[in-house]
Design a protein around this nucleic acid. Sequence first.
DNA 1: TTGAAAGCGTTACCAC
DNA 2: GTGGTAACGCTTTCAA
Lengths: 340, 340
Amino acid sequence: MKVTIYDVAKAANVSIATVSKVINNTGNISDKTRQKVKRIMKELDYYPNMLASALMGKQTKTIGLLIPDLVNPFFSELARRIEDRGHELGYNIVICNTDYDSAKENKYLLLLKQKRVDGFILASGFEDLKKVEELIKEEIPVVIVARDFPMFSVNAVAIDDFMGGYVAANHLIELGHQNMGVVARDLWSNRERLRGFHYALESHGLQINKNFDFIKDINDHIKAGRHMTEKYLTGDNRPTAIFACNDLLAAGVIQMAKEWGLQIPEDLSVIGFDNTSIATVIDPPLTTVAQPIESMGREVMDLMVSIINGEKEEKSRVTLLPSLVTRKSTQALNVACKTN
Amino acid sequence: MKVTIYDVAKAANVSIATVSKVINNTGNISDKTRQKVKRIMKELDYYPNMLASALMGKQTKTIGLLIPDLVNPFFSELARRIEDRGHELGYNIVICNTDYDSAKENKYLLLLKQKRVDGFILASGFEDLKKVEELIKEEIPVVIVARDFPMFSVNAVAIDDFMGGYVAANHLIELGHQNMGVVARDLWSNRERLRGFHYALESHGLQINKNFDFIKDINDHIKAGRHMTEKYLTGDNRPTAIFACNDLLAAGVIQMAKEWGLQIPEDLSVIGFDNTSIATVIDPPLTTVAQPIESMGREVMDLMVSIINGEKEEKSRVTLLPSLVTRKSTQALNVACKTN
DNA sequence: TTGAAAGCGTTACCAC
DNA sequence: GTGGTAACGCTTTCAA
């Protein structure tokens, strides 16, 4: 059988209260007994049952992470950074792939509440915010990450998506592009990026390509990027540059453009978003708007822990700034292109 | 405060024993009380505290997954499939990035044992097997996945790595290649793949390129692939084909070869391993030896659950078979190449 | 068909 | 300094 605090107490000839105190470094106990108890614990290969201590009101040292899809490199990298920081701080991460499906979100939420996780980090869609409000009402720590946030008070860390779109647009404008397509999903963050993109264009008297439409295909970003690109290329008034709202979409754009015999960036400039590892894997290496994924992971975990420890009175929002990473997939508008 | 089974019992005018029975569908209770209790649970928004029931000997419905690195697409895809199947079966997954670091492995193992996870799935390196033996001795369910296994009795699911290497070699041999390089790490699975590769070559009287060496750089597979490729390209007796032991390494190989002005596959055939999502993202699309990641995830989780439920008397091993996925990065040896 | 009570492995308060 | 003991929220026998 498992060895418990009783076994240790008996073997050390002390009470369980004493053992508990040496485990937690609380109370006053003589150095002699402390040493003895520690020795016995080693000998018996005893390790405390955290379920029991959590039942007594201690933390479970476990955080639930709800994320749309680990296969998406942005999220797997984010998950990795969150887990890294969690590990440093003594927390384990339970990972949940939601697929933007609110039924799954709810199932996970309930299950993890039953397991008494110390808090939730939500990277998921959560277009429906009732559940988030519920958590807050139940006083369960929540932090939202990597999506922009609702109008009510909630802890969050995210980048300025509006600015990200703005940066992307300015880069293309500086390169002389005037006819730009966008590939985006109908999600909050993508809408914000689009808004920023629009904003930059408008201040230069430009508009995005008429053939723009939000993509519907949720399952496969690459396919979606390909599909939307085809639409741009078959349509009249072909864009000379495309802004894809994430790197995966951009990969699809590039694939399809190549299949059409276009050269990137000579015939079409492509800019992505996220700066995931695939940006350097595809050919040409992708110019993209970088999210500081590592900092985001760190910040969100730090924020979570400070909330758990009651160090935050007020809700707080951390906004990180995106930055342009220039690689080879964008270039100045080639005038010859206009004949297309 | 949290609502407990006592609150429900009081509100329903029954004992907590009765409430417990309706929660677990055990014992005999009249339909009338069952309905009443259920109604009250809803009204009070009651959900059972799983810590308490786990303390009483029930499962925690949580599995620890130790994996080297979520950023590696092979592992993130595997983790996703495991989590998917776990979710279907009512289990949550705690994810742990070990970076092949046995100190981290040990920390995670201990921590999760304290949290009384129902079992461990080990995708990590675990070249040191003492810890695995310890788990088995403690009768904690363990399944090893995606690495070949030690000489002692342990549950495992993996592909036949030897055969994978063999398949890769045969493909290249059929294409007429005679001078082949390999890019591999000094890990069990890679060694097996290499052994299979060798075996196929030898039965055709061939040997791998003399410049072969295991790569040491652990952090960055792409960089490692690039580096090893450079070695092959600068050395005399240049290979006409390269077998990279995973897709990421293959991506590095292709990058470097292109930088040297080589055309893939005209000047150099490249074959990868894993068939992760990046195989279709890079250019040209990568010919690779596919691991059936989805099946692996499913099998490993199913095996884990059957062990937890005591349905397995003996240890079992599931060996899945790799298969060749032909894309554009390999082609028949171009005779003109030999002048290189 | 229902309920009382013992126990799961801790922590924390209060005596001694 | 140390120990007894009442929680924590649940499951499970055993009586009623």
